[in-house]
Write a protein that binds this DNA or RNA. Sequence first.
DNA 1: TAGTGGTCTAGACCACAGC
DNA 2: CTGTGGTCTAGACCACTAT
Lengths: 258, 258
Amino acid sequence: MLELGQVDKSADAPAFKQIAQSLREAVSSGRLSPGDRVPSESQLMDHFGVARMTVRQALADLRAEGLLRSEHGRGVFVRDRPVVRRVASDRFARRHREEGQAAFLAEAEGVGTPSVDEIEVGSEVASVDVREALGLPARSKVVARRRRYLMDNQPVELAQSYVPYVIANGTKIAERDSGPGGIYARLEELGHLLSEFSEEVAARMPTPEERRRLQLPTGTPVLTVRRIAFDRNGTAVELTDTVKAAPSYILEYRFPAV
Amino acid sequence: MLELGQVDKSADAPAFKQIAQSLREAVSSGRLSPGDRVPSESQLMDHFGVARMTVRQALADLRAEGLLRSEHGRGVFVRDRPVVRRVASDRFARRHREEGQAAFLAEAEGVGTPSVDEIEVGSEVASVDVREALGLPARSKVVARRRRYLMDNQPVELAQSYVPYVIANGTKIAERDSGPGGIYARLEELGHLLSEFSEEVAARMPTPEERRRLQLPTGTPVLTVRRIAFDRNGTAVELTDTVKAAPSYILEYRFPAV
DNA sequence: TAGTGGTCTAGACCACAGC
DNA sequence: CTGTGGTCTAGACCACTAT
């Protein structure tokens, strides 16, 4: 039987926090391992001598922390830290484009089986946000490409790309299948040789919509990356906003110490 | 009076989710603005005709999402999205070191007043993790520097740096005040001219300890950055692990499209 | 069918903020 | 002092999983 200690009712910390701490220690000490089932709510009620809602509040804290996950009718389990994906900052290297590999395929190499679904392509008036990032005048149109990326059939990333309409109109960029090497390969064929990317990385909690589309458990944050591609004239030719399931990603960058 | 609609008891969605959605819409439509007080729990109980725990579960979801924050005895408020800090990837540029500015001071420029506290410096046997990242043999010692960074007296980042003992011992790196330009300036003075940095960025929920030291509201994720500095021989000479309050940061990187 | 977690009620006492 | 949110109890019924 799992050793969990007792609640000290005279202590300052509320009972549910003491229970949560006790379970945290059971995990960090290895008495509970990833995938293991935590004692049921009624077992915890008996063990600690508290009401069900007190136990549930402790469990809610640990779920929000990302330590536990609940399965209705089955039990509460210690989350296993999934194998993370390392994304080298050379994932947009020209050699990949020349080999016909779009970035997501390049980073999937040796990790799992990549796929894409929920693809939507169309043209629209750019939002203020997108317009400013691409340096476009008011009421400019853009070709928008939205899609969801999956690894081994598990959704891991949502992406929205925007290319100025004047560049993309009538090209494969505005079609559902943008062809080998992805839209960066198409941009270069159109004479927009790429010189530089900028990326802005941040983290936040997902919206309910994002949680649904990425099938995220509660208490899981997302990484957001906004990437802008510049051609050799220094003109922004493309913007991609991605929302990534944080536990699936480590982003790797290298830069010189000049 | 704020318009919030009603709960449909015949609907599939549980009452607390409908209440949460109703409040989300009030915020996204602008009927509730950042800083505004949400109706009190008793007002929501009356309005929706439910028990207090049902209202509280809706509010708990919205806190975990980062949309609301509670203040004991005062009320529940819509969180204001704080001003974010942009961190150029040139924050480690040699020119800053030559001007005597450590990285955190450089990035604070024009943003706020930076400070540092909870400084601990000492030598210890490197953990497996640190040892492997720095390419050190078993039982190697390192000089460890731990501290907390604040902006306008608000904690925003925890940092732990490690330098191999054979490099740092007897130098200013092992002292509490590492001098102008920080430890990177000292490493270069010692002949370890830096050539490259690598950074690994990820996001997760904070541990309770991190939440306490960063004074994070519940439902706020952290960004973690592991940076390794390489000298001109390609040797790893320093590792820094940082834990940043996610809402305070946007990390910016630029890299060539080679 | 038994056991699990999910939702909900109707109370209670407490600590904190503001008047 | 009143009103707020924080903690807790002792029940109840439901939906889901496994046997």
